[in-house]
Amino acid sequence: MAFAPLDPILHNQLRLAVMSLLVSVERADFNWLLEKTGATRGNLSVQLSKLKDAGYIKVKKSFKDNYPNTACTITTKGVDAFEGYVKGIRTYLDQEL
């Protein structure tokens, strides 16, 4: 069966990992996401921008103890997309069995 109907924004290892983390918490800093995903700074930065452009997350940049800090939160659109994605893979797995 084709895996195409799944949301292409979420069907990526790092973006899906980020969304799975953000759906479970209220707010997360860039460094926390970096630690939990084990990604590189550059890659995480790029994937966060894609999620932000899709309207799935909100990114707030500020300064914390004189260092730049990026805080991310999931949006309602992001939660809906994530739930749709999970439903999609469940359907696929059910059909596989």
Binding site: F3, H11, N12, Q13, L14, L16, A17, S20, L21, V23, S24, V25, K36, T37, Y85, V86, I89, R90, Y92, L93, E96
Partner: peptide, 20 residues
Amino acid sequence: ETELTPSQSLQLIQDMVQQA
């Protein structure tokens, strides 16, 4: 970009939710 199978996706989601 790394492509995922549905079971890998589900596993990844479970792992990350557990971490959080």
